[in-house]
């Protein structure tokens, strides 16, 4: 790892000021992606600004119509929260399946979503539930947040504060994990909400995406059979040593069916 200057602000305002004054800074959330990439010298920030001591970024609260989860809330906390299990059990289950228990004790929802890894789990929940992302500057709808591979609507010095998840009528997440990394080869989050059915797919393409054809079919009939014959085109999907684009396209349908069945 190259050397850097470690900063630990006590407030959001201080974090942003430190960011402004640094030449090539990075915000540090749980560090479960950033630190490994720094060790591999894929990332070499001048300043690492640790958000770990900013109290307002943490915590889970039941809110009107759903849940609000602070950006620095750890996967373990979401997975074991009585409120999350009661309001959106699918979200607790998704968090329980991220990485391994040791990673879940450190990794955060805000870090995962800000990084927008194509195979991360949380983006599927954020998009699948139509969450709203509140940042240091504004509120962003999930549909406008995810822009591409590792790309989001966040500006360089914009920090995610919290996520507002509306309570769905039904929801489930099913993933086919890579057996070594536990990242999603394909993960599908299905939710029936007051605003309609949403289907969000992670792992398959360069960025999490919705499948409107499946959503329309599930709006008519919320059953596994409704999506059984709907295939996403393989053209834009990832192809690597773990699986071809055609294989991933097939998995999208299989995982969507399983998610609908699990949602009940």
């Amino acid at each position: 790892m190259y050397s850097f200057t470690y900063r630990r602000p006590a407030s959001l305002a201080e974090a942003q000021k430190l960011f402004e004054g640094a030449s090539d800074p990075k915000f540090l959330a749980g560090g479960q992606t950033l630190l490994p990439t720094m060790k591999q010298r894929l990332n070499a920030p001048s300043d690492v600004i640790d958000l770990g001591k900013i109290a307002e970024l943490r915590g889970i609260a039941k809110s009107e119509g759903g849940l609000t989860i602070g950006a620095m809330t750890k996967h373990f906390e979401v997975a074991t929260s009585a409120d999350v299990k009661a309001v959106i059990p699918a979200l607790a289950e998704l968090a329980e399946g991220i990485g391994d228990p040791l990673v879940r004790h450190m990794g955060t929802i805000g870090g995962s979503v800000a990084n927008n890894d194509p195979a991360a789990d949380y983006p599927a929940a954020v998009l699948g539930l139509g969450a709203t992302i509140t940042t240091s500057k504004r509120a962003i709808k999930a549909d406008e947040f995810f822009k591409g591979m590792f790309e989001t609507a966040l500006e360089p010095n914009e920090i995610i504060k919290s996520f507002a998840f509306p309570k769905p009528e039904k929801a489930a997440y099913m993933k086919f994990p890579n057996p070594a990394s536990r990242y999603a080869m394909v993960g599908v989050f299905v939710a029936r909400t007051a605003g309609g059915v949403r289907v969000a797919v992670t792992g398959a393409g360069p960025c999490v995406f919705r499948v409107p054809e499946m959503e329309a079919a599930l709006a008519k009939s919320f059953t596994p059979d409704a999506v059984a014959s709907i295939k996403v085109p393989a053209g834009d999907l990832n192809s690597d040593l773990h699986g071809s684009a055609e294989y991933r396209a097939h998995l999208v349908t299989v995982m969507a069916k399983r998610a609908v069945a699990a949602a009940g």
Binding site: Y6, R8, L28, G31, Q32, L35, P36, K39, V48, D50, G52, F76, P101, L102, V103, H105, M106
Partner: peptide
Amino acid sequence: RAIKSCTMLAAQAD
């Protein structure tokens, strides 16, 4: 809590 100490800065554990 059990964590990987190779994936945490010493300063984070202050």
